[in-house]
Design a protein around this nucleic acid. Sequence first.
DNA 1: GCTCTTTGTGCAACTAGTTGCACAATGACT
DNA 2: AGTCATTGTGCAACTAGTTGCACAAAGAGC
Lengths: 195, 195
Amino acid sequence: MSLPHAILTALLERPSSGLELTRRFDRSIGYFWSATHQQIYRELGKLEGAGYIRALPTERPARGQKKSYEVLPAGREELARWTSAPQDPKPWRDALFVRLRASAVVGTTTGVEDDLRRHLSLHQRQLAEYEEIEKRDFGPGRDTAQDRLQHLILRAGIDLETVWTQWLASALEEFGRLPEDGGREEEPEREQPES
Amino acid sequence: MSLPHAILTALLERPSSGLELTRRFDRSIGYFWSATHQQIYRELGKLEGAGYIRALPTERPARGQKKSYEVLPAGREELARWTSAPQDPKPWRDALFVRLRASAVVGTTTGVEDDLRRHLSLHQRQLAEYEEIEKRDFGPGRDTAQDRLQHLILRAGIDLETVWTQWLASALEEFGRLPEDGGREEEPEREQPES
DNA sequence: GCTCTTTGTGCAACTAGTTGCACAATGACT
DNA sequence: AGTCATTGTGCAACTAGTTGCACAAAGAGC
């Protein structure tokens, strides 16, 4: 459960209102932990209730009015605690693979193939965006410890998107070599290797 | 929402009971779509209610008794429909990156670093397991369309685990070069690049 | 001055997934 | 025969995340 901690991190980097946070999640933090504005507002409420953050004093605190939050010491402590506590990696889930395996067993491959192509171009776009950011924000100048950690994260994104595009390309190649009816099994009772 | 479709796929490959499904999810399908037995039983109930599967007739259908399911034509159709319908890739979420970024801002890196090491060895183990499976199940003999699609999926797993191990190794290297107090910013008000 | 759009904030209901427990049948051990 | 562990099945409560809507304020266009 990382959303509250992602928010604390963002607020430590810079105190912000709900909308500002939403924007920052869209173009930065959301690359590895996405969240909608609804989630963010709800979480801000909880964090405030827990005493981890507080609203910065403002002239007219009314509804529909910008409200900025800053992290309190308790919030910083909680973040430090959470950050250094061990956590298991979540088992990755990807519907695309389910669909691939399903298409092998029902024997229709054209639908997935189209989507494979679409995903490929999405991943290519994302990769390009990351590389753009890398060029822009991580030139030779910036190498404080903080820069280097952020660069490391960006690198993970780039590497991951790279394998995705490569794998999708190779999958499409493989599809090109498949017989028209796809992978429908001829003898359904055959013992499958469970891989 | 892929669990029902993952189950349909598995049942088409071979009719099974809840427990058999659970086992197959553990060592095969679960590599890309994990599920607990509770989820599986619940979903089997729903699928039966929807007329997509049915319990194979058995002598003594009592509680605590093995009950196998098979896919009905309607289930196969639904699976084919779902498989070929376009679906957007889910934005990937990874708490590790949140923690990394958080550690940069709170300035404590030792905890994460230990966990990075632990994750590295977990990914290495997973990678080894996949490669074992590849050697065992996808030798030169097996190359029906279905084999090739399953191999493709396994390849994705291998490729992904490979980048993970590489990235984690490079991250640890980077950590080795960091100053002791980590990435705590010296001037918190500096404009951060939002990458 | 009045509608219209944009910006900022938020609630409520729903869906998916996880955790924790419970209970029946079976065979083994004593 | 009696308890005990194991196997197989399942419910219920909870947590996290998504979707859909609503409402207030402010400025823009007429």
